[in-house]
Each structure stands twice: as structure tokens, then as C-alpha cells.
Write a protein that binds this DNA or RNA. Structure first.
Length: 494
RNA sequence: GGCGGCAUACCCAAGUGGUAAGGGAGCGGUCUGCAAAACCGUUAUUCACCAGUUCGAAUCUGGUUGCCGCCUCCA
């Protein structure tokens, strides 16, 4: 079947055919560096991170460009509010953004261009547009004239006339048409500015993506992505600029992710109902957040709720826990390869499940990156694997059983990693999880260990009522105990 | 006003013409000193509602209701 992607431009799922065999060129709109990133940014970043990873998994050479807007009105306003240079603001939030992306396990793109590093190229594109009659100077600004571009409105599915009727467009005496948008903006005193043929000023927002996409990926590239809210006007304007300037199709597949909602309403700066990534990660494991994001299809709205996050945490726990059991109970030197028949005899259903996982997973992901379905298959394989382990009670596994189990764990983990999940060792994960949760409930490891030791002593004296009291005390504070043949384990409930 | 999207069990969520994945929660059981975790069993003759197309529809068509988004900076 091959990979199919929903294309916003055509409103259909289309087979993905790269411009050049074996190579994919992707451009995703990153952030404007003027504030903390919230969960909406996280969703977008995670979704495109998975798309990036999946293409690499399919064996493509991927050129992935994700820009940063480092000059714009909001940044300038922020700088003025704080009485600092715009660069101070940018540096602060870019650094924070990188930390956030890093903690989320979002891979760095191949290129991460800054707008201010590409101004000469933007000026060139604007110049071309002026020469070709698509842009005009008015006052100290340069505007793109939308009615010169016949396909304007195609991406967002609207007619120029309809939008005029909507009339929620700012009135600007300089513009010939209210929908014309600025390419170059003359500066006021004290604002960051660059020289241009039209005087000192700065680029409009939309032009940077046209210029940088062109510079790093060429006149036409495969995929352009971003949040749904960028469809209009940002991406519409990019198409107009690029196609008017280069006279080539700009992008082959437009991919847009849905919003994160809170109580069924879009999470946004203007509504003030947003959660900042770094705050969330103080209590939520980054992979749990990722599992939460990926458990719904990327184009649908995703409602952010504590309950859903807890569910994701439990699910992740379960996956790690099964992988961990396999690692503990399979001897290091398990022969990687027994022939199929002895494995079949161990558990035909499990064998089937793990042999089918790769193609099921691929089928799901090939269907417009259906991560929710892919995750379903992961859990199904996990359950079969855990069931198999349980058949052996607490014993170590040997021979074909060990082989089967370790193959199962490997196939689950390898596929989870395409989604950026199960990237840690189980021990590492459980330790991280403990640290996070202990901090949240205000206990230290020492606190827990102390009570645990007391309980152990009571238990060894068969004083179960005392032991149960200690257990109860821990439980009340959010720590749950789990007795195993290898000692008592504990976890912090969310 | 224009354009678009969504409605699947108690909750989250796949499924887009062939007879309802997966996860959480609940209940019963196994295991356990008791728990917890895990496993087993169980929980939608039904997919907002009403018509229609079809041998067959959650899936297609028309209509109704409800919710959401874009049209202004926004992932």
C-alpha cells in the first residue's frame, strides 16, 4: 500500500511519492521566541518528531527544517515591556525551547534557521515579487497584492470575496486590498532594523518561511507542516509568495496537526488556558506526555486532562514493566536464534503477535501516521508477552522460552522507539518516575526506605499487623508497595 | 455571515462499505500472610438522531440536533 498522507491542500489522503526517490524534504513552522512553550507547542513538536522518525525508519534520507522566528512584533513588544534588547528575549526563549524539546525527546531538526540570519535571502524574494508585479511599496512598507495571485485561498478553502465579506481584517490605509499582507515593514525608531531597497526595516512574518524553505529545501519540497491555525493566513501567504516568486509548486503535501484543548476549548495564549511544558514536566514523565499526545490521531483535537495524563502514565508503566521483567528473567546469553518450531510450541499466539507487529505497525503508520492504532498493537503485543511470562510464575526463562520472550520485548521496544517511546532502560525509567513523583508528594527516598525497613523487620517477625500499618502509612502518602521474591518494590501513585 | 471539522461503551480512543482494535475504570476469579502488580473472565446486537443508497453502513448520500475550530497574533 505504501505511505498515505492527508493533504490539507486537496483534503484527501494521498499516496506519498517523494520528489526525489529515497529523500524527503520537510519544513515545519517552529516557534516565535517570545514566551514559554506550552503543551500545544509540545504536541506539534512531538507529532512532527514522529513523522521525522518514521521517515527515517522507512529508510529515507530526511532533510528536516524547523525555523525559529526571532524578530517580530510580539518579541519587540516583550522587549519594550522589559526594557531590554529584543535579542535578550530571543536568546532566553530559544534556550528554553531547546531545553523543552530536549526533555521531550524531540530530535533536533537537520537545520534550524533563524529569521534574522536569512534576511538577505528574504529581501531577494521580496525584490523578485516587486519586479514581477506581485508586490508594491506603500509608505515605508512593502505589501503582497493578493488579488494578483489567482490561487489565493486555495489551501484554506475560501474565496477572496468571502473573506472580504468577513471583514474582520484590520483597516490599513496603505493597503490596496485589506487582505494584502506585509512583506517588509519599515521600522520605527529604536526597533531592530536591517537595510533594504525600501529603507530600513524588518521582514514580515510570512516571508521568512518562503525564503528559508527555498534556501534550504529548494523551490519545491515534499512536506510542509505546522499547527492547524497556521493554515490561514500564514501558509496561504507562503504559497502565494513562493509560487508567485518561483513559478513552481511550493509544497506537495501540507500536514497540519490539531489543537490541544482544555475543557473542549483551544489552548491558547489569548485565552490564557495554557499549560507550560516545563511546568507539566515537573510532575509528568516526558514519555508519558508523549504517549498521551500520540494516543490520539494527530489531526483531531486533543483534550488535555489530568485523568488522561494519568492513564498515559499507567500505560507507559505497564510497557516498561513487561520489558523489565523480560530483562530480569531471561539469561543474558540467550541464544538469539532458535528455529521457529520450538518457539511456536512455546506459545503460537505470542509468536504470531510478535511476528505480525512490524507489518501491523507499519500499516497503521502508513495510514496517515495513525499512532493511536500503532500504540494499540504495541499494547496487544505487550499483553501477550506478559501473559507468557506469567505462565512461568517467578521462574527464570530458558531455551526457546527465553528466546521468544526476548524477541517479543525487542520487537515491542524497537517499534515503540519509532514513536520516541521506551527510549530508556526500564530501571532508568522507573528511577526517573520515582524522582518526579516523590518531589510532587514531598517525600524523599530516605523517608520511604525507612518505613520500608521497619515493615520488613515486622514482616520477618510475622508481625503482620505492624507491617500493614507501615504499608498503610506509605499508602496514605501516595506510595504503593509491591512484594516480590526479590524484595519489596514501591512506586508513587500519581 | 463565509469556510471547515467532530459526535463510537462509565472514561480515553482506533476503525472510513463486510459484520465494533487498544488502554483506563468497575465487577468476578487466579496468585499473595494480607495486599499490590500481573494474568484470566466479564462490561456497545451497537456507533448523536431521522430518512435514503446497498445483499450488506459506525463507515456512503440528504436532513436534524449538539459541540468545536478558522476567517485577527496563535502549534
Amino acid at each position: 500500500m505504501g505511505l498515505h498522507i492527508y493533504n490539507t491542500l486537496t483534503k484527501t489522503k494521498e499516496e506519498f511519492i517523494p520528489l526525489e526517490p529515497g529523500r524527503v524534504k520537510i519544513y515545519v513552522c517552529g516557534i516565535t521566541a517570545y514566551d514559554h512553550c506550552h503543551i500545544g507547542h509540545a504536541r506539534s513538536a512531538i507529532v512532527f518528531d514522529v513523522i521525522y522518525r518514521y521517515f527515517m525508519h522507512l529508510g529515507y534520507e530526511v532533510v528536516y527544517v524547523r525555523n525559529i522566528t526571532d524578530v517580530d512584533d510580539k518579541i519587540i513588544r516583550r522587549a519594550n515591556e522589559e526594557g531590554v534588547d529584543f535579542r535578550t528575549i530571543v536568546d532566553r526563549y530559544v534556550a528554553e525551547y531547546h531545553q523543552d524539546m530536549d526533555s521531550l525527546g524531540v530530535l533536533p531538526p537537520s537545520v534550524e534557521p533563524l529569521a534574522t540570519e536569512n534576511i538577505p535571502h528574504m529581501i531577494q524574494v521580496i525584490q523578485t515579487l516587486v519586479e514581477k508585479g506581485f508586490a508594491y511599496k506603500a509608505g515605508s512598507d512593502v505589501y503582497f497584492q493578493v488579488d494578483r495571485f489567482p490561487r489565493y485561498g486555495r489551501l484554506s478553502g475560501r474565496q477572496l470575496e468571502d473573506m472580504m465579506a468577513g471583514a474582520r481584517v484590520e483597516v490599513d490605509a496603505n493597503k490596496r486590498n485589506p487582505l494584502d499582507f506585509v512583506l517588509w515593514k519599515g521600522c520605527k525608531p529604536g526597533e531592530p532594523a536591517w537595510d533594504s531597497p525600501w529603507g530600513r526595516g524588518r521582514p514580515g512574518w510570512h516571508i521568512e518561511c518562503s525564503a528559508m524553505g527555498n534556501r534550504y529545501l529548494g523551490m519545491t519540497f515534499d512536506i510542509h507542516g505546522g499547527g492547524k491555525d497556521l493554515i490561514f493566513p500564514h501558509h496561504e501567504n507562503e504559497i502565494a509568495q513562493s509560487e508567485a516568486a518561483f513559478e513552481r509548486p511550493f509544497v506537495r503535501y501540507w500536514v497540519h496537526n490539531g489543537f490541544v484543548n482544555v475543557n473542549n476549548e483551544k489552548m491558547s495564549k489569548s485565552l490564557g488556558n495554557f499549560f507550560v511544558i516545563r511546568d507539566v514536566l515537573k510532575t509528568v514523565h516526558p514519555e508519558a506526555l508523549r504517549l498521551f499526545v500520540l494516543s490520539k490521531h494527530y489531526r483531531s483535537p486533543l483534550d488535555y486532562a489530568d485523568e488522561s495524563i494519568v492513564e498515559a502514565e499507567r500505560g507507559l508503566d505497564k510497557l516498561y514493566s513487561t520489558i523489565g521483567s523480560v530483562m530480569e528473567r531471561v539469561p543474558e546469553a540467550t541464544r538469539a536464534r532458535d528455529s521457529v518450531e520450538p518457539l511456536e510450541r512455546q506459545d503460537p499466539e505470542l509468536l504470531r503477535e510478535i511476528s505480525l507487529l512490524p507489518e501491523r505497525f507499519r500499516e497503521a503508520m502508513d495510514n496517515d501516521f495513525n499512532t493511536a492504532q500503532a500504540i494499540g498493537y504495541l499494547f496487544s503485543a505487550q499483553r501477550h508477552l506478559q501473559r507468557f511470562l506469567d505462565r512461568f510464575g517467578q521462574r527464570m526463562l530458558r531455551g526457546p522460552a527465553a528466546t521468544l520472550a526476548s524477541q517479543g520485548a525487542a520487537v515491542v521496544r524497537d517499534h515503540a522507539r519509532i514513536l520516541g517511546l521506551l527510549t530508556r532502560s526500564p530501571e532508568e525509567f522507573f528511577e526517573e518516575q520515582k524522582d518526579l513523583k516523590l518531589k510532587a508528594i514531598g517525600l524523599t527516598r530516605e523517608d520511604v526506605e525507612r518505613l520500608l525497613t521497619k515493615r520488613d523487620q515486622a514482616r520477618s517477625l510475622k508481625d503482620f499487623s505492624a507491617a500493614d500499618r507501615y504499608r498503610q502509612e506509605l499508602h496514605q502518602r501516595g506510595v504503593q508497595l509491591e512484594d516480590t521474591p526479590k524484595g519489596t518494590r514501591w512506586r508513587v501513585l500519581a
